[in-house]
Design a protein around this nucleic acid. Sequence first.
DNA 1: ACCCAGGATGGTG
DNA 2: CACCATCATGGG
Length: 273
Amino acid sequence: MSLRLKKGCLDLGRIAGSGQCFTWRPLAGGGYGIPVGERYVEARQEGEELVLSCSQEEFDGFWRAYFDWDRDYEALLTGIDPADTYLTAAAAHGYGIRVLRQDLWEVLACFLISQNNNITRITRSVHALSERWGRELSVPGMACGHVFSFPTPEQLSPAREADYQAAGLGYRAKYMVRLAKELSGGGLARWKERLEGLEDREAEQALMELYGVGKKVADCVCLFGLHRADFFPVDTHIRKIFHRYYPEGFPRERYRGSLGILQQYMFYYDLRK
DNA sequence: ACCCAGGATGGTG
DNA sequence: CACCATCATGGG
């Protein structure tokens, strides 16, 4: 079962390298194994085509939204102020990046780990948790590698602080213990329902009630896990960019409605060596 | 050896 | 309120 689709502004490699998702697994034959909860798809690109290991029904029912398929990225990028040379260059460099509509719990857990950490190590920790507490996934007939689901709060319930330490979480281990506990036993569903009923600023504040979740992680959760495109997480890279290229302030009003998308391009542009 | 990483917390002035 | 030391740990 596979599906071939044409889509502009979609580059799996750049999405994978853009520091928004840490669960993807590069596959030996190219492409990526993409777990979301118990779902799993393998994706690769051949020329203009995106090849997915799922049916049309599975695509329409889930993966279409996951890839933010129906947002007009071309219009968004061509709407960038041509006088803004930094943003223009960032958009060209990161062309193909989309902001995925990820799972709320996975975003919460992964970005809890992300604080004061580097992408390589975050990814390793996330994979370590998946392999230890998650479930092995495969696509019938084309299992390429060993990809595991990211564990649910319930699957993490037996994990202790030392287990998180072993996965490389360092001082964040105690945060994860409490996060998994808070979100298990129906906690996740309650949080999801609560957050969906709140305005942007209220949702951000609510998330900051969680131990180990500050403003930046909360903003990432709102952007990547609640799909609220106006959140603009400010990390060390963005802070540096603001200081160097936008000393008078970033023109937020011009890009209202898609600030978080542009933030992702700026972040990715700053990752280059 | 050194600084940095998609920061947050708890204590102090 | 605003600072600020501290927190693990590996990458570069």
